[in-house]
Design a protein around this nucleic acid. Structure first.
Lengths: 414, 414
DNA sequence: CGACTTCGTAAACCCCCTTTCCTAACCCCT
DNA sequence: AGGGGTTAGGAAAGGGGGTTTACGAAGTCG
């Protein structure tokens, strides 16, 4: 709520680093043009990032007749970030270099019974240890670990306030994790992780207002408003999956009927298929992933049942998205997470068509609907981005304390 | 999107003035405590406002043993603001002093045929002239006129991009008005007017995130996010009235079925009544206001039909509001506009109960649902507030240009 | 009447961004 | 090879904002 001039600096620092990562290698000139900042400010921020070893100078570029432009690029080996995606049935961990390339991956499956925080924590610790070992980076180079856990999360205290799948209430997850993991830890939920991933590296880059619709087992919407993540007053904004889509419709585990999630989440899609064709060979009753994969393959060969299921799903989804477009009037709506990635273009096309029928003309005209361009697990990437933001933040604080005791101020008297 | 340190100043200036209006008379000390700003900053801003004659010093207050606190209060007679509420069937105009008390009112009815911009403009001009004459203020003291017109509005260019009731497309309303009205003009739509009214003077004061639900003939939601109005990328955020509430439900004039507006807008409520009791004496087929009034009176004496209609309406409304609570996690949801004002507590109680059943526990726990505490026409008040913001803005700009040509800078050499 | 208290302004300082000035580094042309 | 011409980038100055500190102003109390 209370804004200070420091926030401006932070936002600009993020923006410059984002641009460097996106355009690497690039020149100060190009960055100034891209960010709208003055050359001086860009130079200062670039200098800061150089000091932090997050970027390096990588040569020169001809300029029309004058002094050549110095080029900077991300210093990929200047550090490593770890992103952890904790979900109902698995823990995915990825280790990234500073260009956000994946250097190592680890996955642990969790059996249905494993719901105690200690069990989850030990899976995370094992996987995190594994990626560090695989990538062969020294511990000192790991700048931080971002952790995404479903449900309501208080990022400041590191507490998982409520996780519906395991019936967790106020679990101090960060404290538990810090007993096994020595790197700086950052906790948030997958919705916001995906949104941040899109904001830094995906379709929401440079946009003021965006909605990142998350289609997985659960459904949610990460809201980017005014260039930043909207968290809401108690950190639980984005619970779009429990929006009522059909009055007295399908029963949802939240206790209500007709929630969006029951129609467009993976289990909902399976239900759509089941209702259309109970005996379909596409249906793998116990395996969401396999069913969605089968659907995607069947759509590719124009299987009529699969096409119809995707169309039905898209209609439900589009009704919900049209409401978001009308309400928030965003620049872009991004379809993210594994269901969206697998169903891809066929889903997107149906959604676009159906949204166009439902939304009001004016807001619709300025809103794009796109698939997430992020090729890897967006939750891991987003979690790693939290760690990146944190590293930037903490290093700058150190910097501030250290740099201020001045040099040029004491000189003149002598 | 791009923030500068000036925005901080503007926000602080607004906040200080808001607090002065709310607490008038008050001391600098109290303002500093209330805003969280330092005494020095508050003193500077108070000085600015004193220079502008928007506030005056009104005496002193004992302080525990030391120098008494100087008190400032709104200088009610320091200027006047006009708020114009253009609706389908009428034009309301109110003239306010700087404490936002209504000094004069005028109303013009518009007959169904009158849909040409020139006709509307002449009604506005007549009413505006009338309020100035009634209040007997000199023209020079009118700081500005805020105009609310339904539909999509571009506040910067002053163009009514689209007004569904009259089928207006890109009408340069501000240009037309400026031929009849000599004061500074500010154009926006009723949704945002109500939201701003709540933000400055109502239930959203001091809140970071709030939703102002507008229940009138049309339905919409003004969104206050991060302490400011959310406009969306093409200035059309807040079109909540056309959110799908009932799949394949009632036909809406927007072309879709089952929009919120068709169930909880005034015509929707009439339909709720008609479906329950087609012959009800409460029903005034041609008069929304009379019907809603009759309903309100009947509920007060526990008429079973009326109670049932309000309950049904509340359930539809609550389903929509619960979705907003889940999605945005606001601090407060304000029910505003004439339908909410007339149905009052009975509607509120039913809504609260029904929202509690639908919304998720966590976001719900931190969200209040309240009736607008604004006793007058909130649209007029909000429109006048736009004029107030504008006056603050423009005066400060003049101030900036005038004050800079320095005094102390040229002195030393001499 | 002086000591104590509290208010409020003025000045100094820190942070942030931009503008301006100047040097560095390269091209080309003579 | 040595000057213009041109562009890059750093350093300093300047303007906006907020806070801290110092001090005079204006009361109360003993």
């Amino acid at each position: 709520m209370k804004r200070t001039s420091r926030d401006i600096r932070t936002a600009n620092r993020y923006e410059v680093l984002r641009q460097i990562i996106a355009r690497s290698p690039t020149s100060r000139q190009e960055l100034a043009a891209a960010t709208g900042l003055s050359l001086a400010t860009v130079a200062t921020l670039v200098g800061e990032l150089l000091d932090l070893r997050m970027i390096t100078e990588v040569g020169f570029e001809d300029s029309a007749g004058g002094r050549p432009r110095g080029l900077v690029a991300v210093n990929a080996s200047g550090g490593a970030l770890i992103g952890v995606d904790i979900a109902e049935t698995y823990v995915h961990v990825e280790l990234f270099d500073l260009a956000l390339n994946v250097l190592a991956r680890a996955e642990e499956d969790m059996r249905p019974g494993e719901s105690r925080p200690e069990q989850v924590v030990s899976h995370v610790a094992a996987a995190a240890g594994s990626v560090v070992a695989q990538a062969g980076v020294e511990g000192a180079r790991v700048l931080g670990v971002g952790v995404s856990v479903p449900g309501q999360v208080d990022r400041d205290t590191g507490v998982s306030e409520y996780a519906p799948n395991w019936d967790w209430h106020d679990v101090p997850l960060l404290d538990l994790l810090s007993e096994h993991i020595a790197y700086p830890l950052y906790l948030d939920n997958p919705l916001r992780a995906c949104a941040v991933a899109e904001l830094w590296f995906g379709a929401a880059r440079g946009r003021g207002d965006a909605v990142v619709v998350n289609l997985g087992t659960g459904v949610g919407a990460g809201l980017v408003l005014g260039g930043g993540l909207h968290r809401g007053v108690s950190n639980s904004a984005g619970e779009w999956g429990h929006t009522t889509l059909v009055l007295d419709g399908r029963l949802c585990h939240c206790g209500n009927h007709g929630c969006v999630e029951t129609y467009v989440g993976a289990p909902g899609i399976m239900q759509n298929l089941r209702e259309l064709s109970p005996q379909s060979a596409l249906l793998h009753p116990e395996d969401q992933t396999a069913t969605v994969d089968a659907l995607a393959r069947a759509v590719a060969v124009h299987d009529p049942v699969a096409v119809k299921v995707v169309r039905d799903t898209a209609r439900y989804l589009a009704a919900g998205i049209a409401d978001l477009v009308n309400l928030l009037n965003p620049e872009v709506v991004v379809l993210s997470s594994w269901v969206a990635a697998r169903l891809g273009e066929p889903l997107l096309n149906e959604v676009r068509e159906a949204v166009a029928r439902h939304a009001l003309r004016r807001p619709l005209a300025s809103t794009e609907i796109v698939l997430s361009p992020i090729p890897t697990d967006p939750v891991c990437l987003g979690a790693a981005t939290f760690a990146l933001e944190g590293a930037l933040q903490s290093v700058v604080q150190r910097n501030g304390q250290r740099a201020t005791p001045a040099r040029s101020r004491t000189a003149p008297p002598a």
